[in-house]
Amino acid sequence: MKVLLIEDNPDHLELIIECCYGAFTDSCQVETFDTLSAGLAALGSSIFDIALIDLSLPDSNIEATTQTLKQLQTTVPIIVLTSLQDGEVGRQLIKDGAQDFLPKGSLHDTLLQRMALYAIERKHHQVQLENRTLDQQTFCRSLSHDFKAPIRNVGQLTSLLKDRLTDRQVLDSEDHNLFEKIENRLHTMNRLVEGLYDYILTDHISAGNELVDLNQIIIELKPILFNDAKTQVSIHCDNLPIIHGNRAQIFMLVQNILENAIKYCEQEPVITITYEVIHVKTKLNEYLLHQIKICDNGIGIETRFINEIFEPFRRLHSESEYRGTGLGLSTVKRIMKNHNGKVLIESEKNKGTCITLQFP
């Protein structure tokens, strides 16, 4: 067992080394460093089975070390060494990528051995999962490209055939209608491929911890929505919060909801976006939520279909009535789940729909 130990306190250092030899037998090798920078440099250049890292070091205080470990990319499992009162910091670091934390006051051979073996096993599974996720993302991109290329080629060949037949003046109105139907079907297939790509990929990209300004998302979406809409669109919006998450996914989330509000409307679309902070109290704990409501004046949904509309490919209307893939709201639900949030829907036929988004 080769151990990387980053610890600057000589007394603690001696105690931890003794525990390592007791836990991993005399064949154990321990390389020690008293600064974070030197230890991480060794971690990047040598092979270790496990790393034991103190949080408070001469070149890095607890907060700085915590931030560094959050962003650290390594296949080596990390056990964070904490004081007894730093348990909450340790638990947070486990959420951010560390395999475990160990209060120095509780350190002994058996505990260190058990925690190290569990940490190595967990890290092994984590690396496998990350590699599988990367493979699936690559597969999704390849699949999207492989499907879109022949669709694009069919479109080009159809357009070329139409132009040649038009030059010969052999097309009548029925022929033009047939070519228009082909173009519409190709657009539908293209949207379906894009929808599938977005839908599959949302499960394999973590929510992330970017600061996402929802006001800016709305500003960027307006020209896209207004240019695509066939009628005048009115959006009335409260001042929205800045939340933590994956910006690309949040953009897709809001875009899907607003596009539905515009598409499923038989009059000039009016969309109202409201925001409030709500306080939730349960028997176990209490917490605050960002709650955003997006309400429209569209055709609404019958109550009996409310529970079905988040299912993939579930459509309540034919393609000839309203274009779509049946994946928009399924993707919305996946993105909210990915952000530890919740999506709720209230609707009444011919009276509009309200979609509620609740973010931590």
Rank of each mutant, 00 (worst) to 15 (best):
I294Q: 01
Y275F: 08
C295H: 12
F305K: 12
R323K: 10
G300T: 12
L253D: 10
Y264W: 08
P312E: 03
E308I: 00
P312S: 06
L288G: 05
L258A: 12
T282S: 15
F310Y: 14
I299C: 15
E302D: 14
Q267I: 09
F310K: 08
Y322P: 05
L289W: 11
I306L: 15
L258C: 12
I262Q: 11
L327R: 10
Y287W: 10
E259C: 05
G326S: 06
I299Y: 13
E276F: 01
R314L: 01
I273K: 04
H317G: 01
E276Q: 14
L327K: 13
I273E: 03
P312I: 08
I294K: 03
F305S: 05
I278A: 10
E276S: 04
V254M: 14
R314A: 01
I294C: 02
F310R: 08
S318M: 03
C295R: 15
S318R: 05
K283M: 14
L327N: 10
P312F: 05
V277G: 03
Q267H: 08
V277M: 09
N297T: 05
L284I: 09
R323P: 03
V277A: 06
V270F: 09
K263R: 15
I301N: 06
H290S: 13
I294R: 02
L289I: 11
I306W: 06
Q267P: 00
E266S: 06
H279P: 04
E276C: 07
